[in-house]
């Protein structure tokens, strides 16, 4: 008898089981990153909802505020404040937002951008 005849120990269905298990591993590896992507962006101005848009189409939106116009850019399922008249530029420096619940707030110009997903992560945020 051969010392270790691996080929005869693994039957054809066993390869199938291994392949199925490998597929399961691949699915598990991808699942946490796939779920919970942002789907919509809510833009507010002066406390009122200015626009509620899907992220699928790339576009630019101009939002008026007390100091001037804030430019919002939607691109590649992400959103950012491209330019804003606020003095410290915090919301612009925040860069691209991609996950649900992320937001950028241009307080002096009273403009905010918030990403929403299928699951609402927070009821409200307090800073």
């Amino acid at each position: 008898m051969k010392v270790f005849a691996a080929a005869s120990l693994i039957k054809s269905g066993d390869w199938l089981t291994m392949a199925a298990a490998a597929a399961l591993i691949a699915w598990l590896a991808l699942a946490p990153w796939r779920q919970g992507g942002a789907e919509r962006v809510v833009i507010r101005s002066g406390g009122q909802v200015f626009a509620d848009l899907g992220l699928l189409r790339d576009r630019s939106i101009s939002v008026p505020g007390p100091l001037g116009i804030s430019h919002i850019r939607i691109e590649n399922r992400r959103v950012r404040v491209a330019s804003d008249p606020s003095p410290r530029q915090y919301c612009v420096k925040q860069g691209w937002l991609e996950r649900p619940g992320e937001s950028a707030i241009c307080l002096p110009n009273q403009v905010s951008v918030e990403l929403t997903g299928r699951v609402k992560l927070y009821d409200s945020l307090n800073y």
């Binding site: 120990l9 693994i10 039957k11 269905g13 066993d14 199938l16 089981t17 291994m18 298990a21």
Partner: peptide
């Protein structure tokens, strides 16, 4: 209970581990 002709201890072991 899987057909023993195709599925051996290796399958049983992987399924049990999962």
């Amino acid at each position: 209970r899987l057909p023993a002709r195709w599925f051996g201890p290796v399958s049983h072991s992987i399924l049990a581990a999962i």
